[in-house]
Write a protein that binds this DNA or RNA. Structure first.
Lengths: 203, 203
DNA sequence: TTTAATTGTGAACAATCGTTCATTATTTAG
DNA sequence: CTAAATAATGAACGATTGTTCACAATTAAA
């Protein structure tokens, strides 16, 4: 039993080596220009070893996407669950997003290129967790509308997408200018909340 | 003279045939999955003919990007130039953007996938016109800050990116839900301006 | 009409990629 | 320690791509 468990543990270790290398290379070069050979080499395995853990390149990409998204989702839902105030919930949403992406900058690059670029036939199957997050954000904003924090004039789904796109934009800009300034990303949560809450407030 | 001019005119016609096919296929499949063979076939030429007009695939892609961006830029600058009121300028900025992308939906898909996806080494040379547009938007917002329309608390460049990202997000959502609803895109300019101007107003 | 120049064509080339699989190395069981 | 099972390897395969170029067709010049 303890033997089998070590085997399985080793296996997960190799799997996560490969995922880590994939994250780095997909972020650096994009899906198409990152090759399985690259990824295997960076993870210090032979090409074929990748296929012992993932069915094909797509499966590797989606596994990466799903696992990271899941971890973001779990964190956010957990922290928000401990709180009642709607405005505070939105605050936590932003802050936890910033903290997560400051720690996962490679993944952020993959994350923002999702939804765009590859609307090609292949990528019709969107990330399930990504869709869940979108629904969750929408539900948060519906709640905010009921509480009078956000105006009912807006479509909740529409506002949800604007909300996340503001967050993404601010992060992206921070990443590009990080060299010059050395602010913490978390310090930008105030700007984001002000922009969004004033923008969506009742007139 | 008249002969040479007809020759040149024919040549431009073929060039724009190819650009049109490229626009369609890059939008549909993305840069990597759209092949020169595809593009040539859709434009009803042989593969090699594409190379009589464009040095390589990259040059074709950038020519497309530059020509469309240029036309958007010219339209916007011209319309805004006829006006003094700052708030009205921002209104025109949004409205002309919506009109342009409603007419150029294929190009919009290419446009939004720029900046993201392909940060790979290859695409370090961003579209010059794209950068000009970014600078122009920033200058508009600096003016808005001087006029007291937008709070001076914000960094103009940061706000400029948020502004365009809100516009992009609203357009993207409209494209996805166009089947069900049949609003005109232009009708959404009010929502965008309200979100942005309230969001960035003085406290 | 005949010849020269230009333009269009698509088969062929070279490079690269995802994926497989025969072989080798390693681990487990007896 | 030996044999069976499992895992890792990387060369090889087939498919696809961007690009070229020898040839054909078309147009211009004489």
């Amino acid at each position: 039993m303890t033997v089998l468990s070590r085997k399985e543990r080793d296996r997960q270790l190799r799997r996560s080596d490969i995922l880590k290398a994939a994250e780095h290379l997909f972020a650096l070069k994009g899906y198409h220009e990152a090759t399985i050979r690259d990824i295997a080499k960076e993870a210090q395995y032979a090409t074929g070893t990748v296929y012992l853990h993932f069915k094909d390149k797509d499966a590797l990409y989606f596994a990466l996407l799903e696992e990271k998204m899941k971890s973001l989702q779990v964190t956010i839902k957990e922290k928000i669950g401990q709180v009642k105030d709607t405005r505070r919930k939105l605050e936590i949403f932003v802050q936890e997003g910033l903290v997560f992406f400051e720690k996962n900058q490679d993944f952020f690059r993959i994350f923002i290129s999702e939804g765009n670029e590859l609307l090609s036939e292949r990528r019709i199957l969107k990330s399930p967790t990504g869709l869940q997050m979108q629904e969750y954000t929408t539900s948060l904003l519906k709640e905010a509308q009921e509480q009078g924090v956000v105006s009912r004039d807006f479509d909740a789904g529409q506002i949800a997408e604007v909300f996340t796109s503001i967050i993404k934009t601010i992060i992206q800009r921070w990443l590009e200018e990080k060299k010059e300034k050395n602010d913490n990303l978390i310090d930008l949560s105030g700007v984001i909340l002000r922009l969004f809450l004033n923008g969506t407030a009742n007139k």
